[in-house]
Design a protein around this nucleic acid. Structure first.
Lengths: 145, 145
DNA sequence: TTATACTTGACTATTTTACTTGGTTACTAG
DNA sequence: CTAGTAACCAAGTAAAATAGTCAAGTATAA
């Protein structure tokens, strides 16, 4: 994998962008304050998110970042892989030579687990996670799931 | 989490134990050679597996380790958590105070992901993984799934 | 033209993982 | 009984990944 702070921060930051009705760009400074994430760390993450075309940037005063995609069209896997490399538990990373040229006792297992996690994260898009959040905050909004 | 080499090694070692028909104890030295894992690292892992009552040890010449449970009764979650702490992606680890005392935008999400992974790993026992392995090695054995 | 805000790259600190070393203790085969 | 085997234990180290910092830029809107 790994699924760690880096991926979580990326998803959180994207959620922040998606929440703030995005006609106006959002500065990293705002996200940093709202989500309690180090500004300089956000800079690194957004460089990667931009390379992955998930966000676009506007420079200068009044500038900031905007989503470059519809929240319905971004899966969590895309976000996480954009900053986090890959979701792959296999020691051999697919080459099947984990144990002296052969595949190890648990090779197939780790393939399955990786697929499961990736599958789950791919089945969720930004919009759904936002909806989930507001549902769980007891701000009952009628959802069209 | 994390799902990393440590957890993989533990599962692999348990699979090795389960494969070797376990009337005779298996030495860590044997597992180390067969699975290509450092002996001293195995010692650390087996200390934890023993504390979790997943294996039992026999000292002295002819000694070694034996499974302390039926392979059908050990889930992968049990093994991994025995050496790896916990499978929990949440920053707050459940206290729901991830963001200034409140739960963060993606709190519910990480609960779900953690549950998914844990659920999957809990649905698999040692025996199944062994069977899987031999199936995928083209040693076609009739399985009762 | 100046303040704002993104961009970059290198650098540091911390944590975790993986592994090593050097023992001690329990046991048993001979 | 004793010598050797193998578990057990405690530190410490190495390497990698994660998390975060710093400083010097560049583009742009007001």
């Amino acid at each position: 994998m790994q699924l760690t702070t880096k991926g979580r921060y990326a998803v959180t930051a994207m959620l922040d962008l998606a929440s703030n009705d995005s006609t106006r760009p959002v500065t990293l400074d705002m996200i940093s304050q709202r989500q309690n994430i180090s500004l300089s760390y956000l800079e690194q993450l957004f460089a990667k998110l931009r390379k992955a075309s998930l966000v676009k940037s506007i420079r200068g005063p009044g500038g900031g970042y905007l989503l470059n995609v519809d929240p319905v069209d971004v899966t969590l896997t895309e976000i996480i892989e954009a900053v986090d490399e890959n979701i792959d538990l296999r020691r051999c990373h697919g080459s099947k030579n984990c144990l002296r040229g052969k595949q190890c006792l648990s090779h197939h297992l780790w393939c399955e687990v990786s697929d499961q996690i990736r599958g789950f994260l791919s089945s969720r898009n930004l919009q759904q996670v936002m909806d989930d959040y507001y549902t769980n905050q007891d701000i009952k909004v009628k959802l069209t799931v």
